[in-house]
């Protein structure tokens, strides 16, 4: 068996109705994994959106995913940031922690250590904003579980290549 690896793929698409459904339908219809998916308009002048998808599969499957994405009509470019690297990956999370006393103090102390910002607080709660790669956010969330983690909202991964190269 070929090993299964995680890949981060950037897809530049026309910002038009149905394009996200096309991409998602491709993944579900052909049985590929979506570990994370983000999409937003990135270019007003050409009306382009950028989709960042984190997926996993054997080398042959990843090659298929890229080829299948590339043949969708509204897709302009497909870049495998894991192969074309080095690249940067960031994710943002909003984390609500509800607790009092020692736990509340500890949550705030750890947030400081992780450079998470306090966006909102009440006498019994904080909403933290944290940015980083997925593993950093996972680590922070794990710590918050014991300290009153109440709700979690994550953006999913956005990524970009280092250096002068541009999609």
């Amino acid at each position: 068996m070929e090993p299964i690896r995680s890949h981060t793929i950037a897809v530049l698409v026309d910002n038009e109705a149905g394009v996200l459904a096309r991409v998602i339908g491709l993944f579900s219809g052909r049985g590929y994994n979506i570990d994370s998916l983000t999409v937003a308009k990135v270019e007003d002048s050409r009306n382009l959106s950028r989709i960042t998808v984190v997926t996993s599969g054997t080398e042959m499957v990843i090659e298929q995913i890229k080829a299948q994405l590339d043949r969708l009509v509204p897709v302009h470019k497909v870049q495998d940031l894991t192969i074309d690297g080095p690249s940067l990956e960031r994710e943002l999370a909003l984390i609500k922690v509800v607790s009092t006393g020692e736990k509340r103090v500890e949550a705030l102390r750890l947030a400081d250590a992780f450079r998470a910002r306090v966006l909102d607080s009440s006498t019994q709660s904080f909403v933290f904003e944290i940015t980083g790669n997925t593993s950093k956010i996972d680590a922070f969330i794990d710590l918050m579980r014991g300290l009153g983690l109440a709700e979690l909202s994550r953006t999913g991964v956005v990524a970009i290549q280092r250096g002068t190269g541009a999609l």
């Binding site: 042959m60 090659e63 298929q64 080829a67 299948q68 590339d70 043949r71």
Partner: peptide, 11 residues
């Protein structure tokens, strides 16, 4: 003509 046909079933 279709790159997605390459290495789909057979390498």
């Amino acid at each position: 003509i279709d790159p997605s046909s390459i290495n789909k079933n057979v390498r």
